[in-house]
Simulated assay, not measured.
Amino acid sequence: MKTVILIPARYASTRYPGKPLVKLTLPDGTQKSLIQMSYEAAKSVRGADEVFVTTDDERIAEAARAFGADVIMTSENCANGTERCAEAMKNAGLEADIIVNLQGDAPLTPPWFVEALIDALERDNSVGMATPVLRCDAQTYALFTEDRRNNRVGGTTAIFNKFKDALYFTKEVVPYVDPNKIPDPIPVFHHVGVYAYRPDALADYGSWETGPLERLEGLEQLRFLENGHPIRCVEVDARGRVFWELNNPQDVARIESVLGAQL
């Protein structure tokens, strides 16, 4: 099966303009942009046949080409990464059995997270879309709750049924956990913003209007749930690594700290 990884990136982020070009300092003192680190993460995925950066901004495209990435340009009308991936596939005339959306703000995404999604779709033909979930450890759970106490939008959490199909995604920390009686293991799952689609699922997405839940939460994957399309949640193991997305300027220091510990 042919697998293509697309890295959607836009300059005009509401919360963090210019985010893909933010420089992160590596342990050796060198710097790389967020988009370059995300591209390098994608290139390390086993089973990926092609990797493209897809953007509507020439500044991002120029930076991506400079470090050797192939680029697919899209319009400014794409409301989110999934729409951008759908348009990129159409614009470039790409054909693939599995399309992976690896968003350009998650350079800490381990390759085995993406490989788990590819494996899930290869094993079960009934799965049209999959996304990883990661059980929160104490450190990640503390970061989630700290962000909410300070009215910052941090990571996303996922609720799913016993069949691992998603019930809901939210920027709140759910389910509720009594702070005086936090169980072990912690029953909160961090949704990792990576998606694997079959071509028909990605095409269907573009035909649906934005629903009220997607509009309120600002989470693109809710459009699938609002239209009755299942999303398979694939539980992944961090293997001791800390995963964090770059959502706010404060996250730069967090990610650099993790890089220093892991590299």
Rank of each mutant, 00 (worst) to 15 (best):
M37C: 13
V194R: 01
A63F: 07
E76D: 15
A41E: 08
E83D: 13
V236Y: 07
T157K: 04
D49S: 10
V4T: 11
E83K: 05
N227C: 04
I60M: 06
T55E: 07
E122M: 10
V242F: 08
G29C: 11
P212Y: 05
R198Y: 04
R215I: 08
L6A: 12
D147R: 11
N101H: 07
A64D: 13
V100M: 06
F52S: 04
A253L: 14
H191V: 08
K23S: 13
P183L: 06
P185Q: 02
T54A: 05
Y176A: 11
D97H: 09
K43C: 14
R149L: 15
A158Q: 07
A106I: 12
E40L: 04
E62V: 09
E115A: 05
E214G: 03
A203L: 01
E95P: 07
K162A: 14
L134P: 09
E172R: 10
D97Y: 08
P107A: 05
W244I: 10
Y195F: 14
P185D: 00
I186G: 01
L108F: 00
S33F: 07
E209T: 12
Y176K: 09
L246K: 01
M37R: 15
A61I: 12
D165R: 06
T170G: 00
T170L: 00
A9F: 12
R198A: 00
V194T: 14
N161Y: 05
G128S: 11
V114F: 04
A203W: 04
Y141N: 03
Y195T: 07
V174C: 12
L263I: 12
M129F: 04
V194M: 02
Y176G: 09
D184I: 03
G93M: 02
A261P: 14
L134V: 09
G228T: 02
I5W: 01
D137K: 09
G18V: 08
K164R: 13
D137G: 09
A79E: 15
C136P: 04
L102A: 13
T3C: 10
E214C: 10
F243M: 11
G206L: 05
C78D: 10
T131N: 06
A238R: 12
A69F: 03
A203P: 02
Y141W: 07
L143M: 12
T109D: 13
L134A: 07
V100H: 04
E245K: 02
N151C: 13
I159M: 13
S13D: 15
F169N: 03
P132S: 00
G47P: 01
I159Q: 12
N80R: 11
E122W: 11
T145E: 10
A64N: 07
A203M: 02
G93H: 00
M73S: 15
W112T: 09
F224H: 00
A41T: 01
D178I: 02
I72S: 03
I60L: 08
K181G: 11
I60A: 06
T145S: 06
F169C: 02
R15K: 13
D184G: 03
A48N: 09
I255W: 04
P187F: 00
R123F: 02
R46N: 15
V114Q: 03
